[in-house]
Design a binder for these strands. Sequence first.
RNA 1: GGGCGAUUAGCUCAGUUGGUAGAGCGCAUCGUUUACACCGAUGAUGUCGGCGGUUCGAGCCCGUCAUCGCCCACCA
Length: 852
Amino acid sequence: MLEKTFNPKDVEDRLYQAWEKSGAFRAGNRPDATPFTMVIPPPNVTGSLHVGHALNNTLQDVLARFERMRGKDVLWQPGTDHAGIATQLVVERQLREAQTSRQAMGREAFIKRVWEWKAESGGTITRQQRRLGSSCDWSRERFTMDEGLSRAVLKVFVELYRQGLMYKDTRLVNWDPSLQTAVSDLEVENIEIKGNLWHLKYPLADDAETFIVVATTRPETMLADQAVAVHPDDERYKALVGRMVRLPLTGSLDPIIADEYATAEKGSGAVKITPGHDFNDYEVGKRHGLAVVNMFTPDAKLGADVPEAYRGLDRFVARKKIVADMEALGLLEKVEQVTHAVPHDEKSKSVELEPMLTEQWYLNVKPLAEKAMAAVRDGRTKFIPQRFEDEYFRWLEDIRPWCVSRQLWWGHQIPAWYDADGNVFVAESEAEALAAARAKHGRDVVLTRDPDVLDTWFSSALWPFSTLGWPDATPEMKRHYKTDVLVTMFDIIFFWVARMMMMGLHFTNEVPFHTVYIHARVVDEKGQKMSKSKGNVVDPLTLIEQFGADPLRFALAIAAAPGKDLRMGPGRVEIYRNFCTKHWNAARFCEMNGCVRAAGFDPARVGSAVNRWIIGELVRTKAEVTGALEAFRFNDAAGGLYEFVWNVYCDWYLEFIKPVFAGSDEAQKAETRATAAWVLDEMLRLMHPFTPFITEELWRVTGEQGPARARLLIEETWPDYAAIARDVAAEAEMNWVKTLVSEVRSVRAEMNVKPSDKLPLVLNTPSAREREWLQRHNDLILRMGRLESAVSGDSFPKGAAQIVAGEGDAGLTLEGFIDFAKERARLSKDLKKAEDEVARVDQKLGNANFIS
RNA sequence: GGGCGAUUAGCUCAGUUGGUAGAGCGCAUCGUUUACACCGAUGAUGUCGGCGGUUCGAGCCCGUCAUCGCCCACCA
């Protein structure tokens, strides 16, 4: 006998282990079947599961289990990402707490330390994915710094280099002074902050009493100024173009130049040009042949190229001092308050990035982007929802070279070696590099390896094929690439999706996936973005602990309407915990009534209307769920199931069959038991992709073979009801019955009659008020009496009917009633439509104003 | 500055080719009848953000305005 409620804690672990042990999640179980492949967006190896992961994993697991049940050979490829910056930061923090640093340890020891940390904490997130029920093929788990994946990275880098797409360049780059590394354009977050716009007076070189005023938000950079620019058409300054200013504080001479970049309306109309520390100024400098002076050290303190008084100062300290000094010289004209966007690192959002002139490795992604755009344009890869394609195009259309080198230690070290003269040798191994160097010099030379590592997203970009064994021609590569669906969130379309498209097409000539499903962001129950600082982070593990994995999964799936924020919290999950209990109790009811699947039961040959009807409803639901899942409408699929389980199966069907079980018609009882069991059984299968644990556990209740069947659930096929025709008669009949029952219930409620009371009880002692009601609803109650007796098998309470009707049986037989029901259903649907159409045409003709 | 999305019951949200406005929660009333109180029955509640247009008919299509959110952008 089942307990009154489902206890997820008792079963989740046991069931998951049984699944995994049985090899049910393994790809390759069905060599003849169509493959279905997804790669998981690899979470940070040292991270833990947040509710966004939970959504992402749930949706993929729904698809994986659905396709597996449909008979496909599913590979859901799991793994983790080494997450260069994030992981290095975590370990560095630990070192700080231990009073040491990576610099003190040295590179080799530090990397060893990170691997240790990975070994220690790397299992956390995959354990948590298991708790959620994710049916990944764990036997194929990969890590971006695995030997095989690293080999793919080397090969890709070297090939891109040989193709001339990967190159070193010295240019301005976004520099993180805290981490002391370059970051890519995508990793910059512009944050609006309130600041000052200082108007500085620069005296002319040959006339110290005449000034040109420049406005700047970054006065400290004036120490590296190389010019003052004005717009060529700006009448105010035309005469000054070509003359020199003497830069205060440094005394150097800078030309006043005319450049379109300056806007007369902005600031004072004249702008200081600092090619070393501003992307625009850098371009202006190139046009005018200005020098590029770097005035900062890597940690953004003032360096050797500034007057001694400022050397070693932090940039913000220097800013204050320079403003004060300028003011003391009478060269500060005014200060305006402005809000302006300042580039910050997107991780902590607390470090102001500095444009810095450094040498870095760049990948010219332009030609790759062309192919990536073409693939989406001609439909080889589709985005759902489609509007994300526009965003994808917009970014790829004006894509700039990708700065792929990072001045970190944790990551794939760049496979480039240098000789003493600075010649570079790019090769997949040191031996190859040495050989190349020997060939060049005619003798053995000593090489040093480039100390930098690659952007984490470089290896992620290869994920769909590197995990399958590329560059080797593995059977998995052949069978599972391209993959089918990528399920991810919109915030990494540029970081990851676009780059996978580019790399995939470039190296395999095939798109990495035919569909990209973009799901929403999960926010808290109040609609606030979750953040640690706000303390409103919803922890999926707490929710699993509290309610179970199934309710969380169902809550996520049913809320997953494409492209909208998705609110999540305990309240939401509780609703679906209740739903799971309801589902559980439906099975419990079946168990109590001996509803066991009967051997040889044929749903197409059921006799009674109630049973024919519920089978029809099931068939309809299955079609709805299947269609919804095929279209990635998870909310519709889950919603349809919710409706069927609760409002159709429990609220109507189980209520209808109670009188049957209480009655004496043994043949009908047997049929009804078999039907109830069969429908429950099928329902469990439809529910399984969403709530795998409870369905697996309940499965044994309805199965002839007991618990041994449980293990097999996910290997069973998705229900196929092709042989069952839609039973319109049963549908119409039951709809009519339901309507009547509702009407009667409403009458009873209004009359204050207990549902348990038989009608005759009321009729024997009618009050005046009751008598009035009975008169008004005479006809209804007559029919109801008929129906109840038809459903329950009891004899029709003739006496009661006579009392009600006052004139004996109205002569309505059940058959006559069903005909009436059908007629009414037909009329209310088809005829209504036809009549409307006729009326519409009539009206049109009437309005047409024919000439007779 | 550009682009996108949202605006539907008190709250949170569905609503896929335009055809009688839906769900859950909450609320009110009643109820422990062969599963389930993590339950059941019944009920109340909507100028579908405003205005204009197309149509026999608009929550849905078009235009416009308002408010909120997100993304992108080199503006001093």
